[in-house]
Computed example of a mutant assay.
Amino acid sequence: MKYCAFLRGVNVKGTNMKMADVCKVFQDAGTENVISVLASGNIIFSSDKKREELKSILEKSMSEYFNYEAFLFLKTEKETENIWKVNPFIDKDDFHSYAFVGNENVENILMKEFQEAAKAKGEEGKIVNNIFYWQVPKGNTLDSGFGKILGKKSLKDQFTSRNLNTFEKIIKKL
């Protein structure tokens, strides 16, 4: 089966890694047809193993190789394509749109955080097919009330986010 792994915290806050090294770790862990998309930790690969087993093996391998606490979230090819296809937002020049990939039911935690946060004009959050989507004015991503949860240590093992443009690039490589 073809998967996409979305790694959390890659090439931010001092966790620097070359995608060629990440691909090698994935290959050494027993996956095949490994390629990376962008430098933000999006790895496409094939494996016959079950998702839960893969997640455990890959997080352990990444943690050991790079000497950091690795968190990654796996989606099948179909699930990855669906995240992009069901995006509820229309493109706006002055806004970024994000999808959050994470553990089961994390979308409800994210929606609660979003509802409680101060918002910029036009900022929106929506859940579609158990995926949380967020649209925020450009320049406000990390400064918005909700954007501040992106770095919350208590949620670091729960989710990661990607700009929807990243999903489009991943799908082209799938």
Score class of each variant (00 low, 15 high):
3 Y>P: 03
10 V>P: 02
11 N>D: 13
13 K>M: 13
19 M>F: 03
22 V>A: 11
25 V>P: 10
32 E>K: 11
32 E>C: 06
33 N>Q: 11
38 L>E: 00
39 A>T: 07
40 S>A: 06
41 G>E: 09
41 G>P: 04
42 N>S: 04
47 S>Y: 01
53 E>M: 10
56 S>Y: 10
56 S>W: 03
56 S>T: 15
63 S>W: 00
71 F>I: 03
72 L>I: 12
75 K>E: 09
79 E>N: 02
80 T>K: 05
85 K>R: 15
86 V>E: 01
87 N>S: 00
87 N>E: 00
91 D>E: 15
96 H>C: 13
96 H>T: 08
96 H>K: 09
98 Y>W: 08
100 F>Y: 14
100 F>R: 05
101 V>G: 02
101 V>Q: 03
103 N>G: 15
105 N>V: 10
105 N>P: 08
105 N>Y: 14
107 E>H: 08
107 E>M: 05
108 N>G: 04
109 I>E: 08
110 L>A: 09
111 M>C: 01
113 E>T: 10
114 F>I: 07
115 Q>S: 15
116 E>Q: 14
118 A>S: 12
119 K>N: 04
120 A>F: 15
124 E>I: 10
129 N>D: 14
130 N>T: 07
131 I>D: 04
132 F>Q: 00
137 P>M: 05
138 K>W: 04
138 K>D: 09
141 T>G: 10
143 D>I: 10
145 G>E: 05
147 G>I: 12
148 K>S: 03
151 G>L: 00
153 K>L: 11
154 S>T: 11
158 Q>S: 14
161 S>H: 14
161 S>K: 02
162 R>S: 00
163 N>H: 04
167 F>L: 11
169 K>M: 11
169 K>R: 14
169 K>P: 01
171 I>T: 06
171 I>M: 13
172 K>C: 09
173 K>I: 02
173 K>V: 06
173 K>H: 07
174 L>T: 02
